[in-house]
Write a protein that binds this DNA or RNA. Structure first.
Lengths: 333, 333
DNA sequence: CATATGTTTGCAAACGTTTACATCTAAAAA
DNA sequence: TTTTTAGATGTAAACGTTTGCAAACATATG
């Protein structure tokens, strides 16, 4: 913990070459004779030299670090995305600085500013709070930004997600086909585009296709917490709904258990489809039927896109839409 | 994305002072006249100057960044710890570089090396794989390391955890008191000290106190996955056990559902106590009785310790043991 | 008025790399 | 043999800060 660190100078001196040459071998530059390369390499190992990434970053203006803004690491949906991000980041020799934003606009801005001050080479944004201010901050950032697992409703920023409209529509359709014409729509804040411009649209589309008139007493919003879902069960019971599509698994689990504990039999009395197919969906009894999203892949792809962007490569497509599915479990008939 | 960044020189020039003075006001140095402080501050805002953290890091040899080694962000136990870490890191104006290790010894070493190359000011290690090699790497690191949510069985490194022996002993006692003398012990790899030196010890202690002879056909190990737990149900059923203490919630959930699906009634035919009180424990039916660990706090405290270490302050105690509890839910009578 | 004292500022040297550019070498071409 | 050329190496200037030290200034003291 107190050692003087060995620098490129030490290596150069010991190897009898200039620091430039050492730098070249460290960076795999081709213009170095094999014998000197070996000589330097030997010294590097003998002295246990490790290049100082900070100095490197300053000189090269690249930190091989990307910032990742996440609402909450503790959330299964986002942590799965984060895992995909980290794995491919590693593959390309990047590190990630993880920053929790709590989906709070002001915190997101603060965190972004902070990441940019640290000179990250790029940032990945997770969250559903993309607003004008944040958009502006992204535009003015001198690092590329890609959005993972959510949408940019103005489609200005590179993003990777699924077709939320179609997925929601399919799920609601499935419910309608089994005879429900009173399907509750349960999502987070309707101010968020992902909810009102995509999920709700998909819900309405399914209704329209089946000639069911929209009834806004079947629209519920809630925070994405287990307890919130559990509470919500009462309201849902009081409504005319006989089935529900829910946009978060933890919320869905709460709702399921709330209903069950109130004596409602799922799926016989009430059917449920949730949205993210996280681990939770298999743990509940009955297991939850769910839209499936390739969270890990979405994370991985978004990071891959970011590496291209950081490399000034052209993107084939600015927003990539990954396939979704629906897995039938026991919360539907 | 293409702007030339404004440096401390620009600010200095515009404000008609030297860069040293600008540096001083940025860093809140007291020896600056109020009027110049204001003048400089105004220019900073006008030019939207943001100090370059990399340059700062090089000059000051402090990066205000800490490395966090985590087995898997996706794991509820560790992500909860990570959340505590990040929150207090933020409080003290640190950022965290998150690195997944998969509990693989070689990856842990690689990741640590990488973090140190990035000149992190400290590192927090999560995981149960503390071995001789890693220990050596920690010792030779020029940054303090603290262990969060696990043990250093040699007690050389600062760590924050709970009293695993006592917790396990209490849980097993609870089972014994309700009449069980065949309690299965289900943990991860028994090569890990936390399992064989702590949890197993606690289990044996409880047995000894109740004059029950140890029977190693009741000892099971498994990976910490839902599916693994589900599979394990068969083996457990085939054993003489009538209750179990499990060291991971996901595993416990799998076991619970495996038993239930095989027609075993929990808690009437079989009782279960799990270890981490993560969200999962409330989602299962029946809900899981669990040891409670203050994960968030353990993360927070470990980060707080690290800030002291990074500040060269003396630690009151090198290992802090936080209180645990047991919350009775429906998987026990 | 001279001196001492304390506060405010500036100067310039780090920090440890990368990277144009210049130089040198040796082999290839003339 | 002389000239070219390409490859291998070295020189030194960035990169954008912090910080020890010296200088300048202001105020209080004798």
């Amino acid at each position: 913990m107190e050692k003087e660190s060995v620098t490129i100078y030490d290596v150069a001196r010991e190897a009898g070459v200039s620091m430039a040459t050492v730098s070249r071998v460290v960076n795999g530059n081709s213009n170095v004779k094999q014998v000197t390369k070996d000589k330097v390499q030997a010294v590097i190992e003998r002295l246990d030299y490790h290049p100082n990434a900070v100095a490197r970053g300053l000189a090269s203006k690249k930190t091989t670090t990307v910032g990742v803004i996440i609402p909450d690491v503790t959330d299964a949906y986002f942590s799965e995305l984060a895992r995909g991000i980290d794995d491919v980041a590693n593959m390309y020799h990047y590190n990630i600085i993880l920053a929790n934003s709590d989906e709070s606009g002001s915190k997101e801005l603060k965190v972004l500013e902070n990441l940019l001050a640290k000179q990250v080479d790029g940032v990945i944004y997770m969250g559903n709070g993309l607003n004008a201010e944040l958009r502006k901050a992204f535009r003015h950032a001198n690092a590329p930004v890609v959005i993972a697992g959510s949408v940019d409703d103005e489609e200005k920023h590179p993003a990777v997600n699924i077709d939320y409209v179609a997925a929601t529509c399919d799920a609601v359709n499935k419910l309608i086909r089994t005879g429900h014409d009173k399907v509750a729509f349960v999502s987070g804040d309707l101010k968020q585009p992902i909810n009102y411009k995509y999920r709700l649209k998909g819900y309405q589309k399914a209704l329209a296709e089946a000639n069911i008139t929209f009834d806004d007493s079947l629209i519920f919003t809630s925070e994405y917490f287990y307890a919130a879902g559990y509470e919500l069960a009462k309201k849902i019971q009081a409504s005319a709904a006989t089935a529900a599509i829910i946009s978060d698994d933890e919320l869905a689990a709460g709702l399921l258990n709330g209903l069950t504990d109130a004596g409602v039999n799922v799926p016989n009395d009430f059917e449920l489809i949730t949205a993210n197919n996280t681990k939770l969906t298999q743990i509940t009894r009955p297991e939850l039927t769910s839209i499936t999203q390739p969270m890990y892949d979405m994370g991985a792809v978004s990071m891959r896109m970011l590496t291209k962007l950081m490399n000034k490569e052209q993107l084939d497509q600015t927003t990539v839409v990954l396939p979704y599915g629906i897995i039938a479990r026991s919360s539907t008939k």
